[in-house]
Structures are given as structure tokens and as C-alpha cells.
Design a protein around this nucleic acid. Sequence first.
DNA 1: ATGGGTGCAAATTGTTTGCATTTTA
DNA 2: TAAAATGCAAACAATTTGCACCCAT
Lengths: 132, 132
Amino acid sequence: MSTELFYVVKYRTRQRDAVLRVVTEEGKPLSAQKIIERADQLCPGIGAATVFRTLKQAVESGEVSKVELPGLAPHYEIATADHHHFFVCENCHELQPLEGCLDDLSKLLPIGSRMKHHEIVIFGECSNCLER
Amino acid sequence: MSTELFYVVKYRTRQRDAVLRVVTEEGKPLSAQKIIERADQLCPGIGAATVFRTLKQAVESGEVSKVELPGLAPHYEIATADHHHFFVCENCHELQPLEGCLDDLSKLLPIGSRMKHHEIVIFGECSNCLER
DNA sequence: ATGGGTGCAAATTGTTTGCATTTTA
DNA sequence: TAAAATGCAAACAATTTGCACCCAT
């Protein structure tokens, strides 16, 4: 009986959990397509709509951050408290979080405008790709 | 005769010229949709396909730069020699070119990777929107 | 039996492509 | 008359939505 209840509870949350597990375990932002692909491995037959719905809700609840970078589809990562930017490998298209930031951005700001936030992206080739 | 020839020559380049004229005259990057809209005013009935084709060719020839920013559709501007970034107003979604840049980006770079280029984007509210 | 979660398929949006026609040289 | 440009409509990719259904409470 208790095992049956356990199974039932697991079933109820299986799909949405799979999505969040994928996002959590990766440690770096993933595109929706990658998340769908991996969630489908954990949970075969999961619909893309479910993945998108789950991501949207998780972003709204603050559990997940939507990472938007130039020229790339939106990526998703588990929300963290720290402020960070990304390195984008132009070869393999993987992202790497960067530590630290530059703080003198305001000197670039147009007169009369107010800065709310900013984005810094470094493009190049990652160590993995350079080794080959 | 000569007037007829003149007319013919003008006709031949009307559509593609309209696209480049729109991009040139604006002085800041425009989205494809905005370009289509304005080109259609200059040159009613112009097809979206022609606009996209023209933009693609102009980018390939180096005449126009494709500007990709986080969360925005690609924008297009007349290519310039100088390196610059953009301010994005989150209210009206207009872009403003920024002067200057930050030069110590490499300190953020992951070990073993090579930087090819970078992007800095400042989001906020522009002076126009703040005044109201 | 009520309501949230789900998959499917249709709708949407933005862009690209194929193709027949027009225009140009 | 051969090559380039054009418009239309179909194709496309990524995401969203409508809807009927399943399943837990």
C-alpha cells in the first residue's frame, strides 16, 4: 500500500519534475530544445508543451532564470543569487558562467537615461574546442 | 526617350534601394519588421521576402551590420568602422548607440578560452520615456 | 465530480525558399 | 534573350494555445 501511494505521488509530478531536474543538474543554461531532448530521455513521451509550460511557470515563480543572449534562443538555468554573465563558445555553442563583473558601465550611459540592468557577453572558443 | 530611360533605370532599383535607404536614414538599428513597414511606405507593395533578401545580401557584402541583442529580434544598421554597443529602452524598445567601451573584459575570461569579440548591452529607460 | 496536469494538434510569429513572372541589360 | 529582381504562397522552426482527457483528491 505505501509503495503504491509513493508511486502515485511520483506519477503526479513526474513530468514537471523531470524538467526542473534537467535544468538543475546541468549547472549552466540550456536551450528549450536541449531541455526537451533531455527531459524526454528521463520521461519518454513528454510533450514539448509541458516543458514550455513548466519553464514558464518556473521562471514566473523565480525558481528558474531565463537567460537571453544575442543571437541565441533563450536559455534556462536554476536561479542563483549572484550576478553573473556568460561566455559563449561560437564553435560548440555551450555557455559558461563568468565570475565577476565590470562596475563602471554607467560611464557609457546616454545622458538623461536610467540604467536598470545590463548584459555582458564574451564570444570566442572554449578550452574544450581549442584543444582539438 | 531620355526621360523614359531614366524612369526605367530608377524602376530597376526601387525596391532594394528603398530598403537600404530606410536603414541608412534611421541612424540606429531597426528590426526587420520596422524596416518592412517603412520600406512599404516608400515603395508600396514591396514584399517582405525582398526586404529580407536585400538585408541578407547587404550584410554579406558588409554594407549593413546585423545587430543581435538579448531578447530582441535582430536589428540592422548601416555598417560603421567604429566599435560600439547599445542602450535598449525597455519601455519603447528603441536602441541608442553608445560611445566608448570597456577594455578590461579579458579579466572575466575563463581559463584556456580565447575571446573573439564581446557584447555589452545596457537596459533601462531612455530620456524620452522618462520625461513623461 | 472537480480541478490541475498532460499530450496532441492547430495557431502564431518571424523568416526563408521555390517558382513563375517581370524587368533589365 | 539570358540574368537578376520581385511577389506570392508554401515551407519552416520555435513557441503558444485550445481542447479533450486522464488521474488524484
